[in-house]
Design a protein around this nucleic acid. Structure first.
Length: 457
RNA sequence: GUGGAUGUAGCUCAGUAGGUUAGAGCAUCAGAUUGUGGUUCUGAGGGUCGGGGGUUCGAGUCCCCUCUUCCACCCCA
């Protein structure tokens, strides 16, 4: 076989032990907090039926779904005419039955509908698994990445929205990341579209609003014109685009402008209520109303949430919202869901950049026993056995190699303690314990050594 | 999907107007030092110059294609 250059697909990564340690810290943190709020774990397969995924994420999303080619002779089912037509959408639907999941929310909706008779509603679940997107990789953008989703389905209560603000706050403060939570409501955006008389242009309007900070008011107006809005509608939009002041001031202006729009007023009410609940036990991080927060997956219908790190240039590290009709697509009507998704990989990148990972993360083994030969080795093996029974990670260097080599092994692996036992220790029934950080070394009997090592951890 | 940059040893990079056997630091391994690491000294291994094609007597260096990584747009975690 020809020599192959080792490598992995674009946008994917290998993780070293130290990186795993950092990721585990993130996973265990979110898992603990999710469980503290009563959420239960589920998992779903890496692949779903292509039809489950298609059409749920908008046109752009469909393009970014990784398809899985059917096994066997996938060509046989395609008609000659379809081959000739070369329509990618039509063809792929015929030769790909499966696809890698694009997010965790849609598979969750599928799960809820599929097991609706076994589920007690409201159903609170969390799910920590990788997802795949055929996007062009960039900083903080991968083709394989982990999402940590928490959702509740079967409850319309705005208490849920408020709870997610709490969860977000708890996660990021435990991790030591300073963040701001941006909050908005799709219903307000719908109200705005209604108010200016272009309900069908909701997407164009939201995209424009989203861009205002980036390209400025004038360019946004130009773009709106290009997208087919009338001059009059753009005029009516101006006070909204130029909204300023506190959240309450913004809401006041909006409620006078949108007075005639039922959805709009509804959205304003919802935001007020969530803010009111949040005020009972305010989050440490800022929560701000942000009308420019217009993006969000197609299926969001109410609240939209996005979290940004204050001290690092990174896209959103957590996002979510309410979706009223996602299970409806799979045949279960009248079940509303809300949830957020933490982007583990982006959170990792932010923490790395900010140096937020504790130094000890690189430590796996706590004690290394130096191997001086068979008799000494066996003498130490008994001690290691006892250490493990006390939950102390320890290992014996497998070869009677040179001392320097064994010490280097301990050093490189950030092992904090080394046990040495040779002729003199064995004669006294003792072990020498060396603290690699301080260099301090004492001779101790097994029990004392174990006590010393385990209290140190 | 659109536009722009990038690519030389495991890593960070040199490499002069195209001209013999492509260099450095760090890392790795070995020795100095057969019961003491992180410092030091000595030595060694390691490169089809991302891949393919072309121009040329001659290409790491110039041209084209492709891949990778990065940046912007789009979109998003």
């Amino acid at each position: 076989m020809a020599l192959q250059k080792p490598g992995i697909p674009k946008g994917t990564r290998d993780f070293s032990p130290a990186e795993i340690a950092g990721r585990e810290l993130i996973f265990t943190t979110v898992r603990k907090i999710f469980q503290l709020h009563g959420y239960k774990p589920i998992e779903t397969p890496a692949m779903e039926s292509l039809s489950t995924l298609m059409g749920k994420y908008g046109e752009e999303g469909d393009r970014l779904i990784f398809r899985i080619l059917n096994s066997g002779d996938f060509t046989s089912k395609v008609s000659e005419a379809d081959w000739q037509q070369r329509d990618p959408g039509r063809l792929s639907a015929q030769i790909c039955e499966k696809a890698l999941r694009y997010d965790l929310t849609v598979p969750f909706a599928r799960y809820v509908v599929q097991y609706q008779n076994d589920i007690t509603f409201p159903f609170k679940r969390y799910q920590i698994q990788p997802v795949w997107r055929a996007d062009r990789p960039q900083k903080g953008r991968y083709r394989e990445f982990f999402q940590c989703d928490v959702d509740v389905v079967g409850s319309d209560s705005l208490l849920n929205e408020a709870e997610f603000l709490q969860i977000i706050d708890e996660v990021f403060s435990s991790l030591g990341i300073r963040v701001v939570i941006k909050f908005n409501n799709r219903k307000i955006l719908a109200g705005i579209a209604q108010y200016i008389g272009f309900e069908d242009k909701l997407t164009d309007i939201t995209i424009a609003i989203d861009k205002i900070e980036k390209i400025g008011l004038e360019k946004v107006n130009e773009e709106l014109l290009e997208r087919g809005l009338s001059q009059e509608a753009i005029g009516k939009l101006q006070p909204i685009l130029q909204l300023s002041g506190s959240d309450e001031e913004k809401l006041q202006v909006l409620s006078s402008l949108l007075a005639s729009s039922e959805v709009g007023m509804n959205g304003i009410e919802e935001i007020r209520e969530v803010f009111a609940i949040n005020a009972l036990a305010p989050t440490a991080c800022a929560v701000e109303l942000d009308l420019t927060l217009a993006r969000g997956l197609n299926y969001y219908t109410g609240a939209i949430i996005e979290v940004k790190a204050l001290d690092a240039a990174m896209g959103s590290i957590c996002g979510g919202g309410r979706y009223d009709d996602l299970t409806g697509i799979f045949g279960l009507q009248g079940v509303s869901g809300v949830g957020v998704s933490f982007g583990a990989d982006r959170i990792y990148d932010v923490m790395k950049e900010l140096g937020l990972f504790p130094q000890e993360l690189g430590t796996f083994t706590k004690v290394l026993a130096v191997n001086f030969g068979q008799r000494e080795r066996d003498y130490c093996l008994a001690l290691l056995q006892k250490l493990r029974m006390r939950g102390v990670s320890c290992e014996m260097y497998p070869e009677p190699a040179k001392m320097k080599k064994q010490m280097q092994y301990a050093d490189k692996n950030q092992i904090p303690f080394v046990v040495l036992a040779g002729e003199s220790e064995m004669n006294q029934g003792l072990y020498s314990l060396k603290n690699m950080k301080t260099g301090e070394q004492l001779q101790l009997p097994a029990e004392e050594l174990i006590k010393k090592v385990s209290t140190h951890i």
